[in-house]
Every structure is written in C-alpha cells, then in structure tokens.
Nucleic acid binder design. Structure first.
Lengths: 238, 238
DNA sequence: CGGCTGATTGATTGTGCTCAATCAGTGTGG
DNA sequence: CCACACTGATTGAGCACAATCAATCAGCCG
C-alpha cells in the first residue's frame, strides 16, 4: 500500500499543513487524514453540488478546479500543485461549489473538515494556519483580479509562468525548468484568453529569447524580462 | 457617544458576526470590539503595509478596498456594505496587503484578530462562521474570475447591479431602488472596464427599459432581463 | 493507415479602449 | 454674485488588441 505515507515521512510536510503543528501533536493530525487511491488523469476529486466533507492536500501530480456557468461554459479557477490545499470554497455552503479534476495522475490527502475544525479548537497554531491559508487564497485572487482586469495577454501569461516557477521553487525543484501540468486550453481558460492567443504569446516569448518552450516543457531564460512584462508594458517606451 | 452601540442593540446583528454566537456569549464578543469614530468620505481605514491587527465590520456607509500595482495603478478589489467584514486578506502576512477607504461617511467595528482567534478557540460556532466568511469571500472571487475572463461588459455591469441589489435586500432594504455608493470610476475599475464603457452601458440599459438611472440612484425595472444579460449574451439570437 | 486531440499559424472581425469634446454640478475666490 | 476652475459623467470617432474563423501540423492510438 504505497499511498499510506504518514505526514512524518512525507517530503512535503515543511510546506503543507504539518508546518503548523508541533511534532508532538503531528500524530493527531495524521490520524484524521485519509490517503485514497491515486486519481487518474481526468478523474474528478469532487464535483460541484457534492456534499462538502473534506478539504484536500495535493501529495503528487496536479489538479485544476473549475466552475460551470449557467450556460454550461467552463471556467478554470485554479491549479493546485503538491503541498497546496484545495476545496476550501465549499465550507460555507455545505456542498462544493466548484469541480476538481486531476490534470495528471495525482494523489491527495483527504482532510475531513469537521475533524480539522475540532483539532483546530485544541491546536491554536493549526487554526491560525488555516486562517492564513484561506487568507492567502483571497490574496492570490486579488492579484488575479488585477491581472484579468488591467493587464495585457502577455502580462497574464508571464505572471502565470512566474507563479508556477515560484511554486516549483518552494517545493525544492528548479525554478527555471519545469513541465506545465495543464494544457494550453486550461491556461487560456484560466487567464481569460483564447487558446490561439496563448500559443502566439509562447512563440513570441521564445523569439524574444525569454523562454524555451517545447510542448509542455518550459525553461525560463530571461526572468527579468518576464517580470518586466508582468509589471506592465508601458516601460517599453522609456 | 453615539458610536458605542453594543452588538445587542445593533440592527445588523442578524447578518453580522453575532449570528454565529449564542446570546449568552454575545457579551464576550462584544467586549473585544472597538467602535471608532466615523470615517469621512475618502478617509482610509487601513493601508497596505500597515500592521495587520484587526478585521472590520461595516456598521454604516460603504468602503472600497484596492491594491496598487507596481506601476502605481489602482485596482479596486471590493466594495463593502453594512454587515460585511473586510480586512481578511492580511491574516497571513501580518500586514495588510490592500487599502481600505470610505466611499462615504462610514462607521466600522474593529475586531482585533488575535482576540477573535482566542475567542474562536472557546466558541466553535464562531470559528466555523469565520471559516465560512472567508470561504464565501473565496467563492465570490471565483464568480468574479468568471465574470472578468468570460463575460461581456454588459454582463459584468448587470452582475454588479444584481449583487448590490441582493446585498441591499439582505439588509432589509429595497432590492429594486438604491443608491450606488461608488463612482463610475470605481465601478469601471472594479469590473475591468473603461469609465466611458460603464457610462454607455448605463444609458443602453436605461434605453432598453431595464433600469432607471439618475446619477448614483438606480431603480431596477426589469430584473429578468438583467439576469439574462448576466447569464451570457448568446441567448439573444435564439 | 485514418481518425482524433492538442497546438500552432494565418486572415479577418469586433468589442471595448483611447482620445477628445461637451456638460452638469460644486466649490472657490475676486 | 458671478466667473472660474475642477471633478464626475456622458457622448462621439477612430483604433488596437485579442477573439473568431479557418487551415495546417504533430503526436497518439485504435
């Protein structure tokens, strides 16, 4: 049973929930967590309208969350990499409001939310950490709000690449070379662009020498220029 | 001292924090809350980089939150009406990441977050309610994400008007006639549009007979059409 | 092989931005 | 008191960025 790794043995514990729990109490957290079978690419972890029971920590692979509009259109709302928590948008409604689907083979730790709340009553640092996590989510959404409402298509893609790079680095992986877990469609959808636009920007970035792209493999060659791109295009004419 | 209204006497208690606290324990919550002097229009409640100490409940008036991009541009990230909580995006960083400014004369209840956390350790329903509040915030941001990335300018304005209408109704006020607390500039900024576009849509909605607009006073005449607008424009050609 | 999905590139169109002028309301100072 | 400036809102004309439509290509699997 390879998927019964305890938090103690998990390499992600420094960036996951355990970072908020003293070693002595880690067992208590560990005991409430379910480790399910791996999800295959395309499989759903939960769907909108499912009863909300748990939040989930990604252990390996990657997932996306999305909502469907009234007219059936999909809107990708987030990408989740190892060490990150998803499913928190269902707390207030007792049912999930978004769908979560594996972008590639993925394993997750299921954390029953009722039990997590109980545990948070006993471990103040865990309560605080969870407030922080949700606060972070809100803050990231504000950044995204800015991105979608003010920034050009180029800025948006640059910002996403830099975000993925930073999150890779946080996990101790390369910040310059990585593989995109999601398709061009998902990138475009998430950023509010057309697939064609995303594709064009990738080639443009590559022609500028800022990036090396081959399918889903990306290498960041000129981080500074990407950052500048993301800060807005008006500096160009200075 | 007109601004020392206890939660017990506050007309907003059914929709504000007290709804999560049993009457017997309401005094405990009440004791940790500061009621400051009213803010004048344009005054800041907090600024980005201020130490994060508290979250705030709006008692009267209205506020907006906004962030500044690296190039100094303002992005309005939210509007807050009586009974609503703001400032939750600062929890994880120990300092605020957004600015909050009064759109009109406003009074707020300051809730020191450290004390709220302590109290949440004792009152599970308060902890749960606060998780719910943040979850709601996240959910609203996902809706906004969809709005900004997929919907037309008309859809966006319709959605904002319907949101304000619903929030007015929640406070026991008219859902069809109300006054916009924010300028056209703020509306445009929030929705990722140009002021001119917002202005044009207002007149178009009025010409269609869906709305009566006079400056900041709005009357919703045809809610169904506005909803349809918000659901997407493709139904038009059926 | 042929059919399929995902990605790239090209040509054209359209929504909403930019620039610009006007207007109403409000407060200011001579 | 009125002229003036100033801000916020509205309306018009032209343009640009990204969407749409369309074709091609690469990889994958039956």
């Amino acid at each position: 049973m390879p998927h019964h790794v305890s938090c103690n043995d998990c390499s992600l514990s420094p960036i996951c929930l355990p970072l908020a729990v003293a070693p002595a109490q880690l067992d208590e957290l560990d005991r409430i967590i379910y480790r399910g079978r791996p999800l295959k690419r395309g499989e759903h972890l939960f769907r909108a309208a499912d009863d909300f029971q748990s939040v989930y920590a990604v252990r390996s692979g990657a997932l996306k969350t999305y909502v469907l509009s009234d007219d059936g259109e999909e809107q990708v709302t987030g990408f989740y990499l190892p060490g990150e928590i998803l499913g928190m948008d269902g707390i207030s409604t007792a049912h999930h409001v978004s769908n979560a689907r594996a972008l590639e083979t993925a394993t997750v730790c299921e954390i029953p939310f009722g039990r997590l709340e109980s545990l948070s009553q006993k471990i103040p640092s865990l309560q605080h950490h969870f407030f922080s996590l949700m606060s972070n989510e809100i803050r990231a959404d504000r950044e995204l709000h800015m991105l979608l409402s003010k920034k050009s298509a180029d800025d948006r893609l640059a910002a996403l690449l830099l975000s993925l790079s930073a999150r890779n680095q946080r996990r101790g992986l390369s910040k310059s070379t990585f593989r995109l877990p999601m398709s061009r469609y998902d990138i475009a959808n998430y950023l509010g662009l057309a697939v064609e636009t995303v594709s064009r920007i990738f080639t443009r970035f590559q022609q500028s020498g800022w990036l090396r792209v081959e399918g889903r493999d990306v290498e960041i060659l000129d981080r500074a220029s990407l950052c500048g791109q993301e800060r807005g295009a008006m500096e160009a004419d200075l």
